[in-house]
Design a protein around this nucleic acid. Sequence first.
RNA 1: GCGCCCGUAGCUCAGUUGGAUAGAGCAGCGGACUUCUAAUCCGCAGGCCGCAGGUUCGAAUCCUGCCGGGCGCGCCA
Length: 582
Amino acid sequence: MMIIEDLLRRALLAAVERYGVFEEDVDIILEKPREADHGDLSSNLALMLGGRLKRKPRELAGEIAAAVELPREIIESVEIAGPGFINFRISSGHQIERLLDLIQEDGALEAIKTGGGKRINVEFISANPTGPLNVVSARAGAFGMTLSRLLDAIGFDAHAEYYVNDAGRQIELLGRSLRAHYMQLAGEDVEFPENGYKGRYLEIMAGELLAQDSAAIRKAGEAFDNESFQRVEIPKGDATVWKDLPEEESTACFSKYALMKILGWQRETCRRYGLRFETWYFESELHDSRRIERALERLKKQGAVYEEEDAFWFRSTDFGDEKDRVLVRSDGLPTYFLADIAYHYHKFQRGFEHAIDFWGPDHHGYISRMQGAMKALGVPDGWLEIQILQQVTFLEDGRILDMSKRKGQFVTMDALMDEVGADVAKFLFLMRKPNSHLDFDLDLARQQSDVNPVLKVKYAHARSCSLLGIAAERGIEVGEPTAASLTHIQDESAWAVVRELVRLPQVIVSAAKSREPHRLAGYALEIATLYNQFYNQCKRILDQDPESRLALLHLTVLTGHVLRRMGELIGIDLPESMEKRD
RNA sequence: GCGCCCGUAGCUCAGUUGGAUAGAGCAGCGGACUUCUAAUCCGCAGGCCGCAGGUUCGAAUCCUGCCGGGCGCGCCA
């Protein structure tokens, strides 16, 4: 079935050809007007063309409307309104066809799959493996995962990825911190490293370590028997052995242990939050496979590197950066930036046709140099897309929580899930657009009350299920929705539901293409609200005459379908029944 | 100082990419529902869309300049 917007677009184009206006001249936008009185779809074509053709928009609209050829069985009426809008009203018969098309195997949800199976890498969270996942990752998790699903929904092959910075100084510092805690608990006098990780979790980890033998440690490490985690190394022996090793070796063992434990936590937290990463990519692999040196060589070959004061610099100013950046420090160690270049270059080599990174706002200054490096390496423009997710401020007792890990006071994603549940958290994050700062009031979220619009969606779904359940109990045969039954929809509130459900494909496409998954949450809420209004308006659906009853039950079936599709995309569970509230 | 993001109802936020009378939830007030179990529904009130210019048929949306808030400006990661 042809999408109705395309049909109208073509008809309008044909109608304006005689003005010398062709497809490439104008982007015809058809949208659902805010006011139901204005029809089902509206075009501002005449308004846009008015200036160019030096014509009064309203007159022009009249001419276009008269010239446009449309099948009457689909478009019931064409009207001119306001300053020159052309409003179309879709016939009820066709509206029902669109509705049914949502559940056809080769229907509208199939038609929007225009991605051609192209592989897109979506990287998000990628938090340092130096502590439990912090709540600030929760927003990225919700967005990244939902965008991945959205991309799949429009026919791409999305690949969720997590980059693990398991190399470099911070990991050494992590090991030294754990070692110090361990030594102190074991009664040894060891100084805590300057800028070490002071989180309580490391103290607890050290305490547990005291009681563990090498067999237990090995067993814990075996939890990583998984292709993606081949880089996780389990230190040999146990901590009593490690602490007697020379300091450097000892630290390495504690580092490996801490990494193993923390990655275990992070992976479990992600699992609990409903995140599925196809790949966990380890920075250490870049070092071992010499990809870092190779990336540097390639940059050198392109003439994008120079040496100064014993360091190697990338000419990022050639690519719009405000200053050149160091790739290899004067002590010979590669910077994080160089590793990141190598990582993204490898991502490109792995055959992804596009890559999307979700970064925090504190990394925005990093974009131009990264894009510059990609360009210098010969990666096509636009291949790497960077989405900045603005900051989340967490409030507790009316005060802003300091999220600095090193100070040891922060809220974990697990704590958030304990307090409000994963679904509530995900939904709240997905209600906000990505580039707006967001205040997350933990006290409010804990209340589990009106601040949880997600419950409205869940209840609406449960309500639809229970209605169908009762119908079944009464022996009412519902079956699959058909055009014949749905034509008996009379009530305006029921039609309002129809008109909203029918937007599903377009909502998915726009949310995916604009990278604004938050539109899904708004849509799901709108459906829930309209369904509730309808339910309230059409009193006692089951007591109505058989034809109306069947029509409304079929509408209920379809509402359930659409809500569940939303639930899948957003990643929330929509149960068939809810606990009764006291 | 420079760069990025934000400023919309008392609060938290939407606003379909420049459209028609700027919306929702919460909080406040008033109703409905003795039910198909529901945290549901209806109504009222609440606005200088930070301020000032500009662009045009038309601006919360685009441009410029201010004001205010956040973040970033390392041979850190």
